[in-house]
């Protein structure tokens, strides 16, 4: 389990003036579902493209399966499955023909290939659509076809670049479960996304990137331990006086309190019973309040604390 599958060292990639990857390093072990999390434009796709030798880079070193990766490393490429960010299929081929085409780029033997294609169709659940042309598929089904094309040849390393963009929740869950199943069957997974919930849900280890740099790395618990925030308490309460807010601020473990006249947000760092203490303050003064809830930190808080900005814009 401890074999290194992918090793990226000090990767630098420039597009003219723009530094897309800035001394980026990464090590991925066999059997991991490795999440590459970062906002749009942070360099995830560029990393993948460099990893696959599709792009040349200015500096750095890339090894896959312990061997140096080059554009002609066909012995490495045969064990990699790639699901690109944009759906790459041929509109002129049916679902089945598409999977067969991409599988055929790796597997020459016809019988073996037929079996692989059947497996892939079953795996993504497109049995009822084998004769369909891609134009007739919904966004979610199209994504699943894209995945089937990438995994049909049973690769050891599977790279998925934002496979759930523009996908309905049902297809999304199916895709995420599928990825976990592939992993259980022995494949190492690299998964890029700007949806932190997904990454949190399935990834065993996560690297967060921003502006071409890796800003944090670890399991999701490790990442959350890196930051001050351990609990965020939200209380609906109208027209609180400044004194109340000030008292909240002086409670132990509380390091920040925000209030906009309706919602009281209390950020805590460590400690237990933070919620009880906060509600005590209100009860003591016989102040009413509406809904109350507390949240453990998400990767968004991690990202927010390290970069000072939200992982993604509100409207997304």
């Amino acid at each position: 389990m401890e074999n290194t599958v992918v090793k990226i060292e000090n990767l630098v990639k420039r597009y003219g003036e723009l530094v897309a990857l800035d001394h980026f390093s990464l090590e991925i072990k066999e059997g991991e579902i490795f999440g590459l999390l970062g906002p749009n434009g942070s360099g995830k796709t560029t990393t993948i493209n460099c990893l696959l030798s599709l792009l040349s880079f200015d500096k750095g070193n890339i090894e896959i399966f312990g061997k140096k990766m080059t554009p002609v490393s066909y012995d490495i490429k045969k064990d990699i499955g790639i699901i690109m960010q944009n759906v790459v299929v041929s509109d002129e081929l049916t679902v089945r023909e598409n999977i067969d085409y991409f599988c055929g780029l790796y597997i020459k033997d016809k019988d073996e290939r037929r079996k692989c294609v059947d497996d892939a169709i079953k795996f993504v659940g497109l049995e009822d659509f084998v004769k369909f042309y891609p134009k007739k598929l919904s966004g979610g089904l199209l994504r699943r076809l894209n995945i089937a094309c990438g995994i049909a040849h049973k690769p050891k390393l599977i790279i998925l670049d934002e496979p759930t963009v523009a996908v309905d929740p049902q297809s999304r869950n199916r895709i995420l479960e599928g990825i976990q199943e592939l992993n259980r069957n022995g494949a190492t997974i690299i998964y890029t996304s700007h949806y932190m919930e997904e990454v949190e849900q399935i990834c065993t280890r996560i690297a967060i990137m921003d502006k071409g740099r890796k800003i944090a790395e670890g399991t999701k618990d490790e990442l959350k331990r890196m930051i001050k925030n351990t609990e965020t308490i939200t209380i609906e309460a109208l027209g609180l006086e400044d004194g109340v807010v000030a008292e909240m601020r002086s409670l132990p473990h509380v390091y920040e309190v925000r209030y906009d006249g309706k919602l009281l947000i209390i950020l805590c760092s460590g400690g237990k019973h933070n919620l009880i203490r906060a509600l005590d303050v209100l009860q003591k003064r016989e102040l009413g309040f509406g809904r109350v809830y507390t949240e453990l930190p998400t990767l968004n808080e991690v990202f927010l604390e390290i970069t000072g900005k939200a992982l993604r814009d509100k409207e997304e």
Partner: peptide
């Protein structure tokens, strides 16, 4: 044009076809 589209060539270049 279809078979030479950048994405399509990229995708193919990931495979064992020279």
């Amino acid at each position: 044009l279809k078979l030479n589209k950048k994405e399509f060539r990229f995708r193919t270049n990931c495979s064992c076809i020279k």
